[in-house]
Design a protein around this nucleic acid. Structure first.
Lengths: 194, 194
DNA sequence: TCATAAACATACGTCACGTATGTGAATGCG
DNA sequence: CGCATTCACATACGTGACGTATGTTTATGA
């Protein structure tokens, strides 16, 4: 059966994004050869430049895809939590676990900021921050935590979680380090409770 | 007067590091041409490869220099503080302010992790973390803050501070954002107090 | 005084990126 | 239903940067 042209296009874009994601995650953005990973899916750099403009454009597309997945996973997690506070703790935990994944560390947390500039300047601008901010705002309104600036706290906690993930991931004893990090986070979070 | 060979060497190394630091800070590591910034100080890539092995080696040297400066500045700040707790707050504030500087953001916080891997794996391993960790340990021993893991807290706070800096630096109203960030940090820190 | 080694410079090969151009197939219109 | 057009790629090429291999000069030490 023949596919329509529109279907071919989305398929080509998806193949390019998938190939780039694989290569960026494996060897990093700088060492990923466009000739290599395009030919791996039966295409050439021509297709890449046509759809994404340049190599950076492709990185943006890859990060957007990963970011969307992360957001979906966070929503999935928090939707199952019993209480609001528990949901927030679960959200932080899930975020920390995602930040432990090598692909996310490399592409989103290291190469992304280096190539595309600080994440604070990205267009999608971190759905995760928005989610955490909303959670904190709800907790503040419900009187569970002390009054404060939800976005500011979300950003601070976000940074703490990301660095905790790096610490764990590069630790010689990840399990023990993870326990230490989680305990520290709980101490910080408990300090926010009324 | 003739300089001894040893003096010439340290001078050459210093010139290369300074030129690279300038270029890395201005256009970023990836877009800094070795031919360009070596010739800017009257040298060639030959000298660079002789002393630093490769481009990454030079980046390591640049970051080591900046890191040493940061550490010295932090020590200078904390040495002047009245109390231990005040010293810790001052240290956090000073760290935040340093992380606001474009050169540090670009070289140490973005290109560094991307090119050299996660900072947690670096040899110097962040004198700043060690300093903060020591401060927290002192506060814990003195009974000022709740008992807890000093290193874990130091790493979490470090991450929070760095992200706060990015937030401020890329904000449309840096002063207002700075106030929000500092308030949030103080809220977090106060949550640690007994 | 001379041999040696170190501190560079020079020349070259390789490779990746981006652009300019070509081509074939699907689409839209008469 | 036929044809022009546009679009989705592929191909070919130029450019520039990195790393290496190889000089060349100068200080050191025996």
């Amino acid at each position: 059966m023949h596919k329509s042209r529109a279907e071919m296009i989305v398929e080509t874009r998806a193949k390019l994004v998938a190939a780039a994601r694989e290569a960026f995650g494996a060897v990093g953005y700088a060492d990923a050869s466009m000739d290599d990973f395009t030919s791996a899916v039966g295409l050439t750099r021509g297709a890449l430049y046509h759809h994404f403009g340049d190599k950076k454009g492709l990185l943006e597309a890859v990060i957007a895809e990963i970011d969307a997945e992360m957001d979906a996973r966070l929503i999935e997690v928090t939707s199952k939590s019993a209480s609001r506070w528990q949901g927030f703790v679960d959200e932080c935990t899930a975020y920390l676990e995602m930040a432990l994944e090598p692909e996310i560390q490399r592409i989103v947390l290291r190469d992304g900021p280096s190539v595309l500039g600080d994440p604070a300047t990205w267009p999608n601008q971190s759905k995760c921050i928005r989610s955490m901010s909303a959670s904190l705002e709800g907790l503040g309104a419900a009187g569970t935590i002390k009054p404060g600036d939800p976005e500011a706290l979300a950003r601070l906690l976000n940074g703490a979680l990301l660095h905790a993930a790096s610490w764990i991931a590069n630790s010689s004893e990840p399990e023990a380090t993870s326990r230490r990090a989680v305990d520290g986070i709980k101490e910080l979070l408990n300090g926010l409770l009324k």
